Simulated assay, not measured.
Amino acid sequence: MNKNVAIVTDSTAYLPKEERERLSIYMVPLSVIFAEKTYKEELELTTEEFYKKLEGAEQLPTTSQPSTGQFVELFTDLKKQGYQQVVTLHLSSGISGTFQNALTAGEMVDELEVHGFDSEIACYALGFFVREAAQLALKGAGVSEILTRLEEIKATLKAYFMVADLGHLHRGGRLSGGQLLVGNLLKIKPILHFVDGKIVPFEKVRTEKKAIDRILQLLDQDLRSDGRYEVTVIHAMRPEAAEQLAADIRENYDNVVDVVISVFGPVIGTHLGPGSLGISWYKQAEA
């Protein structure tokens, strides 16, 4: 194993524990707060447990980022393990201070070079970056090669999400009462995406089917071009719908895609709400 470069991320990549262990990925958790009780996502609260608690919650939970101290503790341990350099990859700095806290911590640990990468995104789309960085590190790649590849991924990566429950957005203060009323009357399903690291509306589409069809149309535009793509279908307690979407994508583009299913875990689920669906993809490196 290459002890020169350690790969660090946060829990919002929602990479399965087995995958993190296999690829030697280190993870720092974000937290969800229900009625003043704090849970570190994945470590103290699974995705399934989160959505069950959400159903009975009188108030919408809040979220919090890892402290600088948590990163200092991890980086110090990595130095003791023999690592000389770290590439730390995190959810968008436009929606969380996690990335900045990691950079601040890196400056506080002597004799360890910490290189930050702002994914400008979240969920398994972030996981795409982390997974490739870890694979390169295990092959002995240096920091420069890893960061170059991450920028290549960013150039082709896209992600679109459909919010199922406008009421959830309203409860969180991200939708006015008037917008909620009109949206419900028109059965609007907003499609969201990331621009400059922030979640913004892409299109307002009527009905879930039209929203999903529109995202698939955007996917098709890229998959009809040259190259092979990695695709993830992301869901918030919609396993059957996610499985069907993944199966349809595999059937239609079998020779050009690898498809995995992921989740909107507790922290991101707090902001998007249950029932949400999304698709993210990027172009694989040429052989």
Score class of each variant (00 low, 15 high):
L185Y: 10
D258A: 05
V263I: 13
M237D: 05
L181H: 12
A242P: 09
G177M: 08
D248Y: 03
G172C: 14
M1L: 06
I191Y: 07
K40F: 14
T148K: 10
R206W: 01
S31E: 10
D258T: 05
I268C: 12
L169W: 09
V5I: 07
V109H: 08
I7H: 03
Y14W: 05
S176G: 06
E240R: 01
T63Y: 15
S96L: 13
L245G: 06
L43C: 05
D165Y: 01
A57N: 07
L45H: 13
L169I: 10
Y51P: 14
G142L: 03
A134E: 09
H271P: 03
E49I: 02
R171W: 06
D258Y: 04
I199W: 01
A125Y: 00
E113Y: 14
F129L: 13
A122W: 05
I249K: 15
F34R: 03
G94A: 15
D118N: 09
A57Y: 07
H90Y: 13
G97P: 12
T232Q: 07
L126Q: 06
Y160G: 06
S144T: 12
E151Q: 12
K283T: 14
E251D: 04
G269M: 08
L186M: 15
W281Q: 08
P239V: 04
I249R: 02
F71V: 13
L147D: 02
L136S: 11
P201Q: 08
G177V: 05
L192H: 04
P16N: 06
Y26Q: 11
S31F: 13
E151K: 11
A242N: 11
Q179I: 14
Y26R: 14
S11W: 07
K40G: 10
S280Q: 09
L54P: 10
L30W: 08
E251V: 00
K154E: 09
G265N: 12
H115D: 13
A285V: 06
L166M: 09
N252S: 11
D220R: 00
L147H: 00
Y160K: 03
I199V: 12
Q70K: 14
E251I: 00
Y51V: 15
E111I: 06
F99Y: 14
E58W: 01
E208C: 03
K52P: 00
L74I: 03
D258L: 00
L147E: 09
W281N: 07
R131A: 02
L45M: 13
L223N: 01
Q100N: 15
E151G: 00
G273P: 05
R228A: 15
P190M: 04
T47C: 08
E230W: 06
I188D: 11
R20G: 00
G167L: 03
I188C: 14
V195E: 15
S96F: 13
F194S: 08
I153P: 11
G140P: 13
L185D: 01
A134L: 00
Q217I: 00
N184V: 15
K283F: 11
F202K: 08
F117L: 11
E132A: 11
A57W: 13
K37S: 07
G177T: 09
I212T: 07
Y282R: 02
G183L: 09
K283D: 01
K189A: 05
E208P: 01
H170T: 02
F202E: 09
P29C: 01
V86N: 01
S225W: 02
E44T: 07
L54F: 14
E286Y: 05
G106P: 03
L15V: 07
I212E: 00
V86P: 10
